[in-house]
Design a binder for these strands. Sequence first.
DNA 1: CGTTAGTTTGAGAGGACTCAAAGTCTGTGG
DNA 2: CCACAGACTTTGAGTCCTCTCAAACTAACG
Lengths: 202, 202
Amino acid sequence: MHHNFPAGTNSPLADFVSHIHPVKQEVIQYINKHSFPHFMRRGEVLIRPGEYSSHLYLICKGAVRAYMIEGSKEITTWICAENEIITSIRGFLLREPAVEYIEAIEDCELAGASYDTLQYLYQHHIEMNVMGRKLLEQYYGAAEERNIISRLTRAESKYNYFVERNGHLLNRIPLKIIASYLGMTTETLSRIRKRISKPPKS
Amino acid sequence: MHHNFPAGTNSPLADFVSHIHPVKQEVIQYINKHSFPHFMRRGEVLIRPGEYSSHLYLICKGAVRAYMIEGSKEITTWICAENEIITSIRGFLLREPAVEYIEAIEDCELAGASYDTLQYLYQHHIEMNVMGRKLLEQYYGAAEERNIISRLTRAESKYNYFVERNGHLLNRIPLKIIASYLGMTTETLSRIRKRISKPPKS
DNA sequence: CGTTAGTTTGAGAGGACTCAAAGTCTGTGG
DNA sequence: CCACAGACTTTGAGTCCTCTCAAACTAACG
């Protein structure tokens, strides 16, 4: 059901791993063989709440977010772009049903691999565990970052914090989504932007 | 430097593991030999920011919290009690210096084990990995729970959420700490309690 | 060029914060 | 066993920020 990457080219996942830690040709080939490309159009949904996802994906191109629906509003949990690995952490690490939607914010090119593929590599090639740790770090870091943002009480501080670390996303992501990531209304975010762009008359 | 548990008695950590998943006598003995009791008085600090911690602890009795200092106020990251495992996740899983204080809220009896001990068991006894996963679950869950709390905008909702899942801690933990966990001032928390205890005149 | 999603602007209300001060609890030493 | 110091909790008044609801404006896309 999954297609492979064209023969003769490396899977982007293989490259990703190589850049973290050199790996044997054998590993490269295994990844090439068992990973697959996946394309998504803006707005398309990759995972829905309740689904058991057994795959992870590297973002080669595009941007993706995870969000939950609470009452009448969306809450964006994380936003990722090129060269980051995404999955439903609950589904993938804990083997439980997903609690959030994962959705493409832009047209995307992904490189996917299954849980089983990764497990095989973990067991047979210790250096692959480095990637596992990277994944954990990324997710744990993101969780912590969101914690920090949401404990800032000033909406302006939240926005500044976001800009400092995710400035490159500013022009790519709809305001609406940033607001829902920062835990404020679009109106408030809009006003903050205005206030900042026209620096205070001092 | 560490004392062992009295000969003839099991380490609480061994019991903890057994209850999750049956393990061979050999494992029990290894744990008994390599884990150790540790006592703390209320207010005592176990880990400080910057320290590289290589141990984890099971709480046999008492309660413990982690907190950071930001500006002039404390921010409580998690609160744990009996039968939960604590450590500096950064230090232990990611091998980085701790970013928070870990402090006893009550007099505590802990059972400790080192990173190396655990690694040994991971490699030689697969069932020990279940405990590793439990630890991850607990920490990830706590991070997510705090995320949920802090994205609730009503202070009263935060408190209710906390009571629902951590009601048993209410009478043990100073208000001050709960407030800092919930991201509000003690004054606000105090007023909420009052409002709730005297149900609305309807 | 029209429809729809996304963004901006405005006015008003409510909730949490700050600062200040009065109570209450706890543990220690006399 | 009591008294006292220090920490913890409650209460009060006033301010400021963000939210809500509404409506105008703009951009993107067929």
